[in-house]
Nucleic acid binder design. Structure first.
Length: 422
DNA sequence: TCTGGGGTCCTAGGACCC
DNA sequence: TCTGGGGTCCTAGGACCC
C-alpha cells in the first residue's frame, strides 16, 4: 500500500510561509530568469493565472490584482523540501522521494493498526506542524492510483486533503469522473490519441484492451492501465539509482554575441556539472555542449548546434571537462548571432571506483591522486566558505547572469537572512 | 524587452555479427 | 520466379515526469 504525499503549491507555499502578511494575497513564483509562471497560490489560481505562461503576458493582471511575484529561490525550496522529507521518514518505514515536493510512503500493514484515512490525516497534520507547509495525501495499492487519489484530495474540498482509494468501488467511481489526461503517465500527445479512439476518462483507460494499448501505443501505457486496475508495475526503488546523465544549462540574462562570452558561460556550466558529478561519486565518459539563439525571436537569424566527444578515460576533473567543452565550442561558434542559451551535458556516467582505465596510458596507475586531491580541496572550500575558488576560465563580468528581480531571502540557510520578529 | 531547467524510459531503424 | 534465420549494439527521436 502506497501513500503519496504531495505539497500544495509548493514554491508559492514556501514563499508565503515567511511572509504571513501575504496569507490571503495571490502569489506566483517564476522560472529561472524570471521567465514563466511555475507555481501559483490558490488565490492566484482562482484569478485564472495559468501554469507556464510567460510573465510578460500577464503584467496587467499582476498590477490589477496586486499579485505578489517571486523569482525562483531553489535554495529555500530545497531546504524546506528536506524538512518535509525528514518528517515523512519518521512516519513510515520506507520513503521514496519522488520529486522536490512529493514522496511515496510504504504503508503496507498500517491498516491493521489504524484506518488508512486516519493515518493520512495524521501525516498531513504532522507535516504542517513540523514545517508549516500544507500537503495532500493519496492512498492506494499502486503508485498510479495513489497519484489519482492525491489528485482527488487536492481537487475536492470535502475530502479534507486525504483520499483513501484502497477499495475497488471507490476507485471506479473516481476514475469515471477523472479526464484521462489527468492520469499519471498520460501526457498531451497520448491523451489526444486516446480521445480519438473514445477513451476519455481514467475508467475508459482502465477498462481498455491491454493488447490493443500495447500495439497502438507502447508497453508504458499498458503498464499504466494495469496500475489503474490495482496491479503494481512500478516497484520500490530500494537503493537510489545512480544518475545516467548530468545537465547544466541556462538561458542568459542578456544575449551573448562573442566567443569569449560563450566560453565563460559554458566553462561555468562545465564546472557546475563536474561538481554534481563528484557529489554523486561518478565519472563522465562523454561530454556534450550546445548553444542556441532565442527561437521566440523568429525575426532574428537563428542558429543552434551541439557537439560531443567521448573520453578515453572517464574523468571527474573540472579542468579536463572545461578543456573538452571549450575545444568543442570553438568550431561551433558562428559570428553574427545573438546567443540566448547554452548548456553542458555529461553522459556515459560510471562509478568513480569501477571504471576502465586506458590500456595505453603512459601514466602509472593511481595518476588521479593529485587531481582528486585538488578537486576535493576546491569542493571543500566552495562548500564551507564565502570565498569561492574557481577556474580562471569562469572569471569575468557575468554577462550571462540570471535575471532574478524578485528573489526572496535565504531564510533558512544563511545567517544573514534569518527572519526577525519585532 | 520579456518564453525554465533537469531528468527518465521506450522504440524503430541501421549497422554489424555468425 | 526464386535471396535465411537469429542475434546484439548504438543512436535519434519521441513521449513522459517534476
Amino acid at each position: 500500500m502506497f501513500a503519496l504525499v504531495d505539497c500544495n503549491n509548493f514554491y508559492a507555499s514556501c514563499e508565503k510561509l515567511f511572509r504571513p502578511d501575504l496569507r490571503d494575497t495571490p502569489v506566483i513564483v517564476l522560472s529561472n530568469n524570471d521567465g514563466c509562471v511555475v507555481a501559483r497560490s490558490k488565490e492566484a489560481k482562482a484569478l485564472g493565472i495559468k501554469m507556464g505562461v510567460p510573465v510578460h503576458h500577464i503584467q496587467s493582471e499582476i498590477r490589477q490584482h496586486g499579485i505578489q511575484v517571486f523569482s525562483s529561490n531553489y535554495t529555500l525550496y530545497g531546504d524546506m523540501s528536506r524538512h518535509v522529507m525528514v518528517t515523512l521518514e519518521a512516519l513510515a518505514p520506507r520513503v521514496d522521494v519522488y520529486s522536490i515536493d512529493e514522496a511515496f510512503l510504504d504503508i503496507t500493514g498500517v491498516n491493521r493498526v489504524v484506518a488508512l484515512g486516519g493515518f493520512g490525516q495524521q501525516v498531513k497534520s504532522t507535516v504542517v506542524r513540523n514545517t508549516g507547509l500544507p500537503v495532500c495525501v493519496g492512498i492506494a495499492s499502486t503508485r498510479t492510483l495513489a497519484k489519482l487519489a492525491n489528485y482527488a484530495a487536492k481537487k475536492y474540498r470535502a475530502t479534507d486533503g486525504v483520499v483513501d482509494l484502497s477499495k475497488t468501488d471507490r476507485q471506479r467511481r473516481l476514475m469515471a469522473l477523472v479526464p484521462v489526461d489527468e492520469v499519471w503517465g498520460v501526457g498531451r500527445k497520448i491523451s489526444v490519441k486516446l480521445q480519438a479512439v473514445g477513451i476519455t476518462t481514467a475508467l475508459d483507460l482502465a477498462d481498455a484492451d491491454p493488447a490493443t494499448l500495447r500495439k497502438r501505443f507502447s508497453v508504458v501505457l499498458e503498464r499504466t492501465m494495469s496500475e489503474l486496475n490495482g496491479v503494481a508495475c512500478l516497484p520500490w526503488e530500494d537503493v537510489p539509482q545512480p544518475k545516467k546523465q548530468i545537465m547544466c544549462s541556462r538561458s542568459f540574462g542578456t544575449v551573448v554575441k562573442t566567443l569569449s562570452g560563450l566560453f565563460e558561460a559554458v566553462a561555468n556550466f562545465a564546472v557546475r556539472a563536474a561538481e554534481k558529478l563528484r557529489a554523486g561519486e561518478q565519472c563522465a565518459g562523454a561530454v556534450m555542449v550546445f548553444v542556441r539563439t532565442n527561437p521566440f525571436r523568429s525575426e532574428l537569424p537563428q542558429y543552434s548546434n551541439s557537439a560531443s566527444v567521448k573520453l578515453i578515460t572517464p574523468t571527474q576533473d573540472s579542468r579536463v571537462i572545461v578543456h573538452q567543452v571549450l575545444s568543442l565550442l570553438k568550431p561551433m561558434f558562428r559570428d553574427g548571432y545573438d546567443y540566448a542559451k547554452a548548456g553542458v551535458m555529461l553522459g556515459d556516467l560510471v562509478s568513480q571506483v569501477h571504471y576502465q582505465e586506458d590500456l595505453f596510458s603512459i601514466e602509472p596507475s593511481g595518476k588521479n591522486e593529485r587531481s582528486d586531491r585538488l578537486m576535493s580541496v576546491m569542493d571543500e572550500i566552495n562548500r564551507h566558505s564565502g570565498v569561492k575558488v574557481h577556474s580562471a576560465r569562469q572569471a569575468g563580468p557575468a554577462a550571462h547572469k540570471m535575471r532574478r528581480k524578485h528573489l526572496s531571502p535565504a531564510y533558512t540557510t544563511d545567517w544573514r537572512h534569518l527572519p526577525t520578529v519585532r
